[in-house]
Design a protein around this nucleic acid. Structure first.
Lengths: 199, 199
DNA sequence: GTCTATATAGGGATAGAC
DNA sequence: GTCTATCCCTATATAGAC
C-alpha cells in the first residue's frame, strides 16, 4: 500500500505521462478515441511502449481511474476541514472537467467489468466522505438527522452538482440560474438553520 | 413533420430493426461496440446495407437518439395527465434502461458535434415538459412559485432520479433507501402541502 | 526503457451485381 | 432493397533489436 506506483527508480515520468495523456484524450474526444496510438503520440513515445507499462488497454484505463479517484478523494478529505465543507463539496462535484471524465468512465463501466467494479468502489468511498461532511455540518447546526438522513442530503448535493456539470458540458443552461439560487439558499440554511425561511 | 420516417412504402422494417439493434448494442456493450458489422448481424442483414439506410454511422446514432427522444417525450407528455404527474416523471427518469443509454449518448455528445447539438435540444424540450408538470402541481397545491421556481424543482426531481438510475446500473445502492424515503416524503408534500412537516 | 516491425483482427465506407 | 467483394485505415498486442 505504501508504493502504489511502480517501485522501479522510475523512468523519466513516462508512465505518469501516459496516464495523463489518456485522461486528456478521454476528456477531449471520449474513451473510444483513447487508443494506444493516440496516447503514445500525445505522450511523445512510440505505440508499443504503452504495452510495456500496461499489459492491456483496460489496465491503463483502470490506472487513469484510480489516479483520478485518489486525487478526487484527497480533495474531498481536504474539503472536510474547509470553512464551508458542503459548499466545497458542491464546487468539487460541479467541475465539468470532473463530470465529463466521470461520464466517460460510467459509459466504460457499463460494459467492462473491472472498470465497473472499481468505479463502484470509488463511488462508495466518495459517498462516505461526503456523508461525513454533511453529518458534521448538520449536527453543528442542530438539524434533525432522522428527518434528513445525512447520506441522503449528501447524495442530493453531489448528484445535482454533477448533473449541472454534465449539462454545462453539453451546453444546457436552462433553469441553472434558478437552481443555483435555490441551492445557495439551502446551503446557507444547512450551515445556519436559525435563518430558516419557509414556504 | 407528418412523416418523420422514410416516405417510401418502406421495406420490411429493416430500417427500424437497424435502429433497434443499434440501441440494444449501445445498451449492452457501449457505443464503441455499435459497429456497422455488429449492428447488421443483430438486425439479420449484411453490413453494407447499413450504409444504404444511413450514409454514415453518425447518421444512425443520431436517428437512434431521435427515436428514443420521441418515445421519451411522448411518455412525459402522457405523464402530464397522470394522477400524480411528478411521481410519473420520477419513474420515467429513474429507469436504468433510459439512464444507461443516456450516459452513452452523453459520452458520444462530448466529442461529436451533431450528437451534442441534438442531445442539447432534447434535454431542453424535456426540461420544458417537466417544468410544466411541476408548475401545474405546485400551483394546484398553492405552493409559492417564487420561493421554489418550478424549473428548479423539475431539475431536482429529474436529475436525482437519473443519478439514482445511473448508480443502480453500476451497482451502487448506498444511501438509496434513505434517499427514496426523503423523496417520497417530499413528493407527498408537493401534492398535498397541508401535511407539511418541517425540520 | 525504448525502439522497429509485424501478426491479426476489425473498423467505415464504396462499387457494382442481382 | 439486398447482396458480394473489396479498399484502405486503424485497432490491440507481440517479437525481438538496441
Amino acid at each position: 500500500m505504501a508504493t502504489p506506483r511502480k517501485s522501479k527508480a522510475d523512468d523519466g515520468g513516462t508512465r505518469r505521462r501516459l496516464i495523463e495523456a489518456t485522461a486528456q484524450i478521454m476528456y477531449d474526444d471520449g474513451y473510444a478515441a483513447a487508443t494506444s496510438r493516440q496516447i503514445a503520440a500525445k505522450a511523445g513515445v512510440k505505440q508499443a511502449l504503452v504495452y510495456y507499462y500496461f499489459p492491456t488497454m483496460d489496465d491503463l484505463f483502470l490506472e487513469v481511474l484510480k489516479v483520478g479517484a485518489d486525487v478526487a478523494l484527497a480533495q474531498m478529505r481536504k474539503a472536510l476541514t474547509a470553512d464551508d465543507p458542503i459548499r466545497a463539496l458542491w464546487q468539487i462535484n460541479i467541475d465539468p472537467r470532473r463530470t465529463v471524465l466521470n461520464t466517460e468512465f460510467m459509459a466504460l463501466a457499463n460494459h467492462r467489468k473491472v472498470i465497473g467494479a472499481e468505479l463502484k468502489a470509488y463511488a462508495e468511498r466518495v459517498r462516505d466522505i461526503e456523508t461525513a461532511a454533511v453529518t458534521m455540518v448538520m449536527r453543528a447546526s442542530g438539524i434533525d438527522l432522522d428527518a434528513y438522513p445525512p447520506v441522503a442530503i449528501a447524495m442530493l448535493i453531489a448528484q445535482t452538482a454533477r448533473s449541472l456539470g454534465n449539462e454545462l458540458a453539453v451546453g444546457v443552461t436552462e433553469g441553472h440560474e434558478e437552481f443555483r439560487a435555490l441551492v445557495e439558499r439551502h446551503l446557507a440554511l444547512l450551515s445556519n438553520p436559525s435563518a430558516a425561511v419557509r414556504s
